[in-house]
Design a protein around this nucleic acid. Structure first.
Length: 763
DNA sequence: GTTCTAGAAC
DNA sequence: GTTCTAGAAC
């Protein structure tokens, strides 16, 4: 197949004539225009002429007309032209833009470096062609830059590349140096970090201009929207598709050229499928989670095939960073075997966070191979996506869910303030958690591929359903909005019942709930007569049903491997006999491994499936009473030894360790293991639920109230006795070691505190 | 849950 | 410069 590409490229290349281009450089004196041209002219395979107004008159400064004349004659000879003058104002460049024609594209390369840098370079340089150097340069540069007007595509450029730092310039140099005579580059604005001008999306225009391959046997020359796809048209070219500072080495770019996916579809030229939303997704679990690539590729293809009928005008794209990617080639081969429509599903090489800006592929939805905590960090795709999104994604994610169980996905609408939204056009990120085969990571399946396969299948199902629900919700919003305008009813299109948010494959109820919300959103949008854009935007803030999803997810909390220790003890107490104080029928008692006070025990239930307070129901009432009784007995034994101690028995609202456990803890908090705010607040705020209260609640309401644990744990540090505030843990501890104030009255009621009979605190 | 550590606070 | 916190990694 790969041979096909090269053959096709060659054939196409031989047929085509080289097209000269005009590159209008823009930049203040000292921005490096001349250096840029000289470098490219020296190292490019394409014939170039540099038209420099400073030297055009036999080495002396000439006129604009001379520049234009020289440029025209160079173009006639088939040479490409650099216009090397400042061109900072629109007026100054308009005549040069007119050099363009259907045969001659006009590019802009903007060397938009900091003013200070340009000034200092101009002042320091010697031997400048135009003699703009030394003291006078500073004033000139400053004045020129005040009039700067950044170029827009509407002036007539087919592409504009902004360079705002040295690394941008290097990338641009690389690109134009390797830009062979037969190559073309995608149209549009690239590399602008502080958009003064609106980025114009020239990509669709570009895509539609690409001719369908004359060789019906291969679609290699029509790879969708990829700069690389165009560049492979010439076999010997080594130009990459990178637009800005690149992490891709030249070797990598050559690989893009040589192994780009033949199964990749082009945007349809009849227009039928060219405008649908695209989901870009990484291969789930095959990187850090070490899932077998062959098995994973089977699942991807199987799940994609299942989704085919539902895709409508949307597309799925499997993305990986390198074309050496084993998973991409496996999936390509298997998708081809199964005759999966390459217009609906294809593989793509690129950075999933820069698909539009660097590869010209606009994907409104991207999937993230998330961790169970839904936190940034780690490596790979997760780190890249969170980095590229700025803090917005983290905040938006928190609104949707706190964690994920393997096999599920959560849809997060991306705020438009996120760079990933503004630069790449991404409207949603779908976090997906796949199965883990890496013993170094949580929830390792220890090679159990029966489970692993099921989980990965669920993960892709959740992902694709999530994507389709976004699409159908947006379609619905748009449709309803139109209805409002037209004031005419229309029939339901029968879209997915699934809501747009959380897509646990087992969550039928969730889906129903989300469906309701979807309806509500639509109603809102009718009522307020919003425009489509506004409606989608309010939907994108994701606040509408965030609450539902928090509930959904917290019920299925995933536990890290480190959080399983108590569970293992409870399931096999006999294996841990040496560390246990007592083994009873329903509970075991043990010392907390890191006691946060002089005396700190745990009473642990042996009941499987009872992980935390949230799981406790009425049927566990007797168990709770047993746990309390056992804890109380232990506390009383301690009090016999030391009557000055005071105990409290209770549960953490949300424990860090799995398996319901009752803390029996003395109230001195005199321990080297009590180190941080979280430790302190987990025992001294409402986060700590007194056993007596829990028993009452279960008995009366059937479940325990869970306090707003995140806020409670980050509250200021206050003495648990006198409630005075302290700036840090050491100061707090030195206070509490001496504080003898009576305990707050709330604690003295209802037997929340366990004291020796003769303790003066005893009411 | 702890450990480690970058960087904030002092 | 030292102390302390908070977040990531495990």
């Amino acid at each position: 197949m790969e041979m096909d590409i090269d053959d096709t490229c060659k054939a196409k290349g031989e047929e085509e004539k080289a097209k000269p281009i005009v590159v209008i450089l823009m930049g203040a004196p000292g921005s490096g225009k001349s250096t840029f041209c000289e470098h490219v002219v020296r190292s490019s395979a394409r014939p170039w002429v540099r038209v420099c107004q400073d030297t055009i008159n036999n080495g002396k400064a000439g006129t604009k007309v001379q520049c234009l004349t020289n440029a025209v004659s160079a173009l006639k000879e088939g040479k490409s032209v650099f216009i090397d003058r400042c061109n900072l104002e629109k007026e100054q460049r308009v005549d040069f833009v007119k050099l363009g024609s259907p045969q001659v594209e006009v590019h802009a390369v903007v060397l938009d470096l900091p003013t200070k840098l340009c000034i200092s370079r101009s002042v320091k340089r010697t031997g400048h062609e135009g003699n703009l150097q030394g003291g006078k340069a500073a004033a000139v540069v400053n004045r020129m830059l005040q009039k700067k007007e950044l170029p827009k595509l509407s002036e007539g450029f087919s592409r504009i590349l902004f360079c705002q730092n040295e690394s941008d310039i290097h990338a641009a140099l690389d690109m134009y140096s390797g830009f062979g005579p037969l190559d073309t580059l995608p149209h549009g604005c690239f590399g602008q970090k502080k958009p003064d001008t609106k980025v114009q999306l020239g990509i669709m225009k570009f895509l539609k201009k690409v001719e369908a391959p004359s060789n019906a046997g291969s679609s290699a020359s029509s790879i969708q929207g990829s700069a690389a796809s165009q560049i492979i048209e010439e076999k010997n070219s080594c130009c990459g598709g990178k637009e800005t500072a690149s992490s891709l080495t030249r070797t990598a770019r050559e690989e893009v050229k040589s192994c780009q996916d033949p199964g990749v579809s082009s945007i349809s030229h009849n227009g039928s499928s060219s405008d649908g939303p695209i989901l870009a997704f990484p291969s789930i679990s095959t990187a850090d989670f070490q899932f077998d690539h062959d098995k994973a590729s089977d699942i991807i293809v199987e799940k994609v095939e299942e989704s085919m009928d539902k895709l409508g005008n949307t597309k799925l794209v499997l993305v990986d960073l390198t074309c050496r990617s084993k998973i991409l080639s496996l999936v390509r081969a298997k998708a081809a075997q199964k005759n999966i429509n390459p217009k609906k599903f294809f593989t793509f090489v690129g950075d999933i966070t820069k698909l539009y800006s660097e590869r010209g592929l606009r994907c409104t939805v991207i999937a993230n191979a998330a961790n169970w905590r839904l936190k940034p960090g780690g490596g790979g795709v997760n780190a890249a996506i969170f980095n590229a999104s700025g803090p917005d994604l983290e905040v938006a994610t928190k609104e949707q869910a706190k964690s994920l169980v393997p096999g599920s996905a959560v849809v997060v609408p991306l705020p438009s303030t996120s760079p990933l939204s503004s630069k790449e056009g991404v409207t949603h990120v779908i976090h997906v958690l796949g199965p883990n085969m890496n013993p170094q990571r949580p929830n390792c399946l220890d090679g159990d591929y029966v489970k692993g396969r099921q989980i990965l299948q669920k993960a892709y199902t959740s992902l694709f359903e999530g994507f389709l629900s976004i699409v159908s919700t947006q379609a619905k919003l748009s449709q309803e909005s139109n209805e409002t305008i037209k004031l005419e009813p229309s029939k339901s299109q029968g879209h997915s019942k699934d809501g747009p948010r959380n897509h646990s494959p087992t969550g039928d109820q969730k889906n129903k709930r989300d469906g309701v919300h979807e309806h509500e959103i639509s109603k809102k949008c009718k009522g307020s007569q919003n425009e489509v854009g506004t409606s989608i935007n309010s939907f994108r803030t994701g606040k509408v049903n965030a609450e539902n999803n928090k509930l959904d997810v917290s019920t299925s909390k995933a536990w890290g491997s480190w959080a399983q220790a108590l569970y293992h003890i409870a399931m096999h107490p006999e294996r841990h006999k040496d560390n246990l104080l007592e083994i009873l029928d329903d509970v075991v008692v043990l010392d907390d491994l890191y006691p946060k006070a002089q005396k700190h025990l745990l009473v642990l239930t042996r009941c499987d499936g009872l992980d935390c307070l949230e799981d406790v129901r009425k049927e566990h009432l007797q168990l709770l009473k047993t746990m309390h009784a056992v804890g109380l007995k232990c506390a009383e034994e301690f009090l016999d030894e030391d009557a000055s101690l005071v105990f409290r028995l209770g549960y953490h609202s949300v424990p860090a360790m799995r398996q319901l456990h009752l803390h029996v803890i003395s109230q001195d908090f005199n321990s080297k293991h009590l180190k941080n705010k979280k430790h302190w607040n987990s025992f001294t705020t409402a986060f700590f639920r007194d056993s007596v209260d829990v028993i009452k609640e279960i008995s009366n309401q059937g479940k325990a109230t869970l306090k707003d644990y995140d806020n409670l744990l980050s509250m200021e540090l206050r003495c648990h006795r006198c409630r005075s505030a302290h700036p840090n843990i050491p100061r707090l501890k030195s206070h509490t070691s001496n504080c003898r104030a009576p305990f707050p009255t709330s604690l003295l009621q209802n037997d929340r505190l366990v004291l020796a009979p003769n303790n003066t605190n005893n009411p």
